[in-house]
């Protein structure tokens, strides 16, 4: 089980790191906000945040102090990455929406409070689930991922209708879908971890909770699948792009023939 989790973590880190570098390189050239935000999200929320938290959790029993420091650093990266995704969803998909602007600033305030309170006051990045302070940060981060999934998949549904009329770019539509699927995998992994924490396994010491390894393996595999989707979206191999375009050239012809 541990080799599977380690392999999935390695796949996740390599693919997410490559995507982050690709997007940040693009941002340095274009000076545009969306690629910068996504690059930051993948680098901080993905590679650095997720990896730091995984390593911190793994050394919880052997080096509790190091585990807490890594948890604090990881929490900062993780929450910043989540906020970058939320900002991207607001500014790209609905820049004129006052309701979504309010939602973004509310999430930012909750995550800032979560970090300041948990790290600054108690020195605990992730309070146990019996503490009420476990929930604001967890719910705010989950909300940003839900926002990501809804924004991407609802926009993809519109792009599918445009594609049928030849009014959309097939690779771009596929990219939105893959990014949304990456969000679904990330959401499933984070909900699993949160459920495991609330149900008990992640709040218990390693040796008292055999279910913990299973949950970690499943969660890491899910986010690794999400990383594969992100890699196909933002660093697509030429053969994959050619396949997407060939499918699109068949689809409108079929629609027109109906």
């Amino acid at each position: 089980m541990i080799p599977i989790a380690l392999t999935a973590t390695l796949v996740y880190a390599l693919l997410t790191g490559a995507v982050a570098i690709r997007l940040l390189t693009l941002a340095s050239r274009t000076r545009e906000l969306p690629e910068l935000l996504l690059g930051v999200a993948y680098l901080l929320g993905g590679v650095l945040g997720f990896a730091t938290i995984i390593v911190g959790t793994a050394c919880q029993d052997d080096a509790p102090l190091l585990s807490r420091v890594l948890g604090g650093v990881g929490l900062f990266f993780f929450s910043t990455g989540h906020l970058a995704v939320a900002l991207m969803c607001w500014r790209v998909f609905a820049p004129g929406s006052r309701r979504l602007a309010a939602l973004f600033w509310l999430l930012a305030a909750i995550l800032a409070l979560d970090f300041a309170r948990n790290i600054g006051v108690e020195g605990i990045p992730f309070p146990p689930s019996r503490s009420p302070w476990y929930y604001p940060g967890m719910l705010a981060r989950t909300a940003t991922t839900v926002w990501w999934v809804i924004a991407a998949l609802s926009y993809h549904a519109r792009l599918r209708r445009r594609l049928a009329l030849g009014l959309a770019d097939a690779p771009a539509a596929n990219r939105v879908l893959l990014w949304g699927l990456a969000g679904v995998a990330t959401l499933a992994g984070s909900v699993l971890i949160s459920a495991g924490t609330i149900a008990g396994p992640f709040d218990l010491p390693h040796h008292d909770s055999p279910a913990r390894d299973v949950l970690v393996m499943i969660a890491v595999t899910l986010v690794a699948l999400g990383a594969v989707a992100s890699w196909l979206a933002f660093l697509p191999p030429k053969r994959y792009l050619a396949w997407v375009e060939s499918r699109a050239s068949v689809a409108p012809a079929e629609t027109a023939g109906r």
């Binding site: 693009l26 969306p34 790209v92 998909f93 690779p171 539509a173 990219r175 979206a233 792009l241």
Partner: peptide, 14 residues
């Protein structure tokens, strides 16, 4: 017109 998200996603995979 504001930038269509499709234009953003075209650029992201270029």
């Amino acid at each position: 017109a504001p930038v269509d998200p499709e234009e953003v996603f075209k650029r992201l995979g270029r």
